[in-house]
Design a protein around this nucleic acid. Structure first.
Lengths: 114, 114
DNA sequence: TGTACATATAAGCATATTATTATATGATAA
DNA sequence: TTATCATATAATAATATGCTTATATGTACA
């Protein structure tokens, strides 16, 4: 088995993207479940355009993929991403962000998208 | 055994630091051997002050530690760093940078510091 | 078709980042 | 003690980043 290793500039680019608390948290959440934009907006203390712009960076880099479901746009980790295993390794080293979602649920904001 | 998990803002801060090709490569090299500043300067295609400033960021964050040996300043990974295991996990996922050092050796620049 | 909701994009601004040049500091050795 | 080498710091300039507000797009539904 050949160990396909990531190159340094690619790794640096990924780490740079993940070196932002909002994006990193989004990714960690997506590692557990798909999420729609409005949930992220409710979850983070920032504006909808800011969220949208963070997501776009992740999408442009290929880390996440989108799927529209009616009015809503859901995002998920892109398992076809060239360095998905590298991303996963990282996500596994981070604490689950379940509370973020349960908070939403408490506020009744989770279901609003489903 | 309690799994001491890193917090998201700390993780993001580390990833941000490592999200720079020069710093990331430095760290990967240090994961294998201590290195002195002049070696880094010879290795990367950038100025001595630029290198010095990158190292400072890593040092300020606690990721590396310095030790002066005569005229030279050597750096090494700080194994006492609170999130050393997180850093190591990352380094292990990256390709060895041995060629960078062997290039130096070829040019006779490696020994210049020892 | 028009209104409402979800999301994306554009433009502008404040701040952060990184490199460069010039200079300072610190150690060694003649 | 002065010259030299190694490294750090300061000042500055160019560029990147991330936010905000305003607006556009896309979908659903009355």
């Amino acid at each position: 088995m050949i160990k396909q290793s990531i190159e340094m500039d690619q790794a640096a680019a990924i780490l740079k993207l993940l070196g932002d608390k909002t994006r990193l948290t989004m990714m960690r959440i997506l590692a557990d479940h798909d999420c729609c934009v409005c949930e992220f907006v409710a979850m983070f203390d920032t504006s909808q355009p800011a969220i949208s712009q963070h997501i776009r960076k992740l999408k442009d880099a290929g880390l996440v993929k989108e799927s529209r479901r009616g009015q809503w746009v859901f995002y998920s980790l892109n398992q076809q991403y060239e360095h998905f295993d590298f991303v996963q390794l990282l996500m596994n080293a981070l604490p689950s962000q379940e509370e973020k979602l349960s908070e939403l649920e408490k506020q009744g904001k989770r279901i609003s998208c489903e």
